[in-house]
Amino acid sequence: MKQNRFWAWVVFLAGAAYFIVPLVATFEFSLRMRRGYYSFDSYASVFSDPNFQTTFGYSVVIGILAIIVGIVVVVPAVYFVRLRMPWLRPVMEFITLLPLIIPAIILVYGYIRLYNSSSIIPFTGSALGTDILLVFAYVTLALPYTYRAVDTGMRTIDVQTLTEAAQIAGANTVQIITAIILPNILVAVLSGAFLTFAIVIGEFTIASLLNRPAFGPYLQNIGANRAYEPAALAIISFIITWGAMGMINVLGHFAPRTSARTD
């Protein structure tokens, strides 16, 4: 028994080291900008860079828009599939997995061909149009995560009975989704939102090929031209992503509690 636990710890520590050592090394390197001793100069340099502020701000805005559009599209879709068209679920599962299978570069080339300035819907003909296209691209990219998060959330509640209880009380479909369904799956929806945010904030391929001033291309540019700042940016990106993941964990504690009791 003890022997078993010893090897379990060895494997665990080896695995942990695989992830932690490069991270610690990167962090250590990011502190070495000033020769001879550790400092946060590289971080100060990053934060004071106006390009950092604009690209980061841009990606945050695009990320928030992608989250909102994602919720507006996915929540009603999952709701209706669960309620009225359960036979469509395998199709939905398949479609929402496609963004994981089709590389982002294929997606963006498809977009450029379909929505170029000489097409019927010339999204890429203007900056605003391209921004809209970018938001939709991110909604698509985050679909596997958003769909699953929302679907899991809906599984925890009795969608049909709650819908019927609200209907018989006089509520219409919009009132049911906004007042009953959405609040009860909010934790799941927010989990999907944080995953979307984590994906969007560092995404490079689509933003770069659509030529948008996003954080991903900025990271790449800094990485190619500077020494210490990329390490600092890597750590900052990690903190943002982990923060988003940590929020999902925290939110899990606020999930609706079951009230199925027989007493």
């Binding site: 509640i157 009795d158 009975t161 709650l162 019927e164 209880a165 609200a166 209907q167 018989i168 009380a169 006089g170 509520a171 219409n172 007042a179 009953i180 609040p183 009860n184 909010l186 609706p256 509690r257 009230s259 199925a260």
Partner: peptide, 30 residues
Amino acid sequence: LKPNQRKLGMVFQAYALFPNLNVGDNIGFG
């Protein structure tokens, strides 16, 4: 008529109280 136009009340086997609303808001929903 649609269920929300019939002016009927219904109690379900599985209670079907709205988990996100307190008792007062549940009763006051309609």
